[in-house]
């Protein structure tokens, strides 16, 4: 099981702040994007592209980074703090 969080504009576009994927054992960020893209056209448009940055357990990661069961994954737009 993994937890997936969404922030900022992405959270609003998807109308989802978090979800759980119970049958996720192991895979890369790129693979998770593909899985989420199956949830509908909005998901395909906003998650499958590379506009959304990704983090695993609160660390920014690359497309090939590995997600394991129990991890917290997050997708979000480029940051605009400061």
């Amino acid at each position: 099981m993994i937890k997936v969080l969404f922030f900022g504009r992405l959270r609003e576009l998807l109308d989802c702040s978090q979800l759980e994927i119970t049958d996720f054992e192991q895979g890369t960020i790129a693979q998770l994007r593909l899985e989420l893209a199956n949830k509908g056209t909005k998901w395909a448009e906003f998650i499958a592209g590379n506009n959304a940055l990704a983090a695993i357990n609160q660390e920014m990661v690359e497309e090939t980074s590995m997600i394991n069961s129990g991890d917290e994954v997050a997708f979000f737009p480029p940051v605009t703090g400061g």
Binding site: F7, G8, R9, A55, P77, P78, V79, T80, G81, G82
Partner: peptide, 25 residues
């Protein structure tokens, strides 16, 4: 680095709430 890596997002709030807009990098 804060502006590039720290996970904050700014949304400009306007008098008419439906016109609120996320700030782009």
């Amino acid at each position: 680095y804060l502006k590039k890596e720290a996970p904050f997002w700014k949304k400009e709030t306007r008098k008419k709430q439906q016109q609120d807009v996320w700030i782009e990098t």
